[in-house]
Nucleic acid binder design. Structure first.
Lengths: 306, 306
DNA sequence: TCGGGGTCATTCATTTTTGAATGATTGCTC
DNA sequence: GAGCAATCATTCAAAAATGAATGACCCCGA
């Protein structure tokens, strides 16, 4: 049995993603008959039907679903290879892909990255913002800012300190609704919080209770403005919708945002991580270092160290 | 800039591995001019010289060395894809790749795997024996038998108990040199042990000292027959070269191998691991289960559990 | 019921890729 | 130093892959 040509996998993946031969052809810069022939040949070589040709488009079969993750992996690796080769071996240039949470990526990273790029005009930054952690081992990203300690081997990780979360509100809201003085007061306020009870939220709630014994839990307080999107929470606070959590350093930067119950604190330990092999890549190394330094600055003389 | 065709990476990798266009062509089932053209095109698309054409063969450039790991990763993924598709979705058949240490693979696994294959004639087993842990996340292997606890996420792991190591010798040796009665006696014996001071050996030495306070360390005993190959150690013990460590259950099976200082024990915790995604693959699941059961039997009603 | 926009399959000429053959060069052996 | 067995580069004809064009089909909305 002959191995399929690797490019067939790329075509296969495009068809999986788009759901049609024509769309895949457009993405790949090929034509629809070519894509169709690629699929045919892959099916022949693998001895599997990959798509059932129904008139309303192609339906991937079980076999297609099964091998798709492998094709995705091929794609991320190929993309990583191109990023790697995009930069020289001495100078800080080329493409670096960074993954971070949306709040960090939008509120914290821009000045850090702008300064980095000012120093290295040849550097192109790709920002992938999501709470789904992209896999550094599979090179889905080159450098990551994480709020959970990366457990995988073969990663260079650096703790940059703890980002502190605290309750904040807009002065407009506080003049209207009053300023809470005790944890118990919060029960009478409009609280901004999470929508779903994700694993992170449950963990955070438990930790919050541990750190701040007087703080009532979700059940007792009740949340009036719920969203899982951290940026939306921040926007709600800014708009005077109520009291919610945001990063204290972030709030300090905002023109008019006031801290509420300053004793309540929730530290978010933060790491920067990248694959070991990328240490020797100037662009990744420089980005890593800039992120570490920038975040430590942001946190305010963080603990640093490994 | 156009993306290079993924098959160019495969050709590139073959050239890296073989060191010549002709050899790569033979491996790939292509011809030498084709391989040369592929390399040319990849160099053109990446804007990098990958090989310096010297008369005495091709020398990979720094750029080639840099991207080779990515090409290797592509190759392992493609291989994993083919293994995946080699089996059906319901029946236990196709190719399963297992990695284990050499002693386990040669002395322990054969009957387990033979029984597994007897039950499932369509199952093809690939055994990769090495102390280098192949990366399950990158699908270098489907199932692994490990002596260290796998730390990576996204793995299904199962503790199968502790394999006990003990000192053993051939009766011929013992009649010739006497049977040691105390740890101190070992100093007067021919000891079989490791060659280099690897991280594992250092750790094992420390652990050994902790578990068996009276046991002298390497420095005090002195090793007279040194090899890092565990099979070679076992062979030396069998040949009556002296006293060395081997698995007690293994020694029991040998026709004539006698335990020495039975109080001395060194338990080797053992795990079976595979990638989470492969749980739904019958061939991997069956292999995983068979290995767990077989190893628990081997250990002798091991502790089991997770 | 009738287009319009989308899909995929088929055909055929064109382009591209490939392989066989050949030549040039090197390293090794005798 | 000649002969042999490698290597890679080049050439040219054959094979393969591709794309444009066309036709058939389906869904959707008028």
């Amino acid at each position: 049995m002959n191995d399929p040509d690797w490019s067939l996998y790329r075509t296969f993946l495009a068809v999986c993603r788009t759901g049609s031969l024509s769309a895949a052809a457009r993405d790949l810069g090929l034509t629809q008959p070519t894509v169709g022939r690629h699929v045919d040949e892959l099916e022949r070589l693998l001895r599997r039907t990959l798509f059932t040709r129904s008139p309303q488009g192609l339906m991937p079969t079980d076999a297609a679903v099964e091998i798709r993750p492998y094709a995705e992996s091929l794609a991320t690796t190929a993309a990583a290879l191109l990023r790697q080769v995009s930069g020289g071996l001495e100078r800080v240039e080329g493409i670096v892909r960074i993954t971070a949470s949306d709040v960090i990526g939008i509120e914290v990273l821009p000045p850090i990255l702008a300064q980095l790029q000012a120093a290295h005009p040849g550097l192109v930054v790709e920002l992938s913002l999501s709470d789904l952690v992209e896999d550094l081992l599979h090179r889905e990203a080159d450098v990551a800012v994480r709020m959970t300690r990366p457990v995988q081997d073969a990663l260079v990780i650096r703790a940059v300190g703890e980002i502190e979360l605290g309750l904040h509100a807009h002065p407009d809201y506080l003049t209207r609704a009053g300023t809470p003085e005790t944890f118990a007061d919060l029960a009478r306020h409009r609280m901004i919080g999470f929508d779903r009870q994700t694993a992170f939220v449950r963990m955070a709630t438990a930790e919050m209770r541990r750190l701040n014994p007087g703080f009532s839990t979700v059940e007792q307080i009740g949340w009036h403005y719920r969203t899982d999107n951290n940026l939306a929470q921040l926007a709600a606070i800014r708009a005077g919708a109520g009291i919610g959590f945001c990063q204290t350093r972030l709030a300090e930067r905002q023109p008019r945002l006031q801290r509420v119950l300053p004793d309540l604190r929730y530290p978010l330990p933060t790491w920067v991580a990248m694959h070991e092999d990328l240490k020797s890549s100037p662009r990744c190394r420089a980005t890593f270092d800039a992120l570490v330094e920038g975040l430590q600055d942001y946190i305010g003389g963080g603990t640093g160290g490994r």
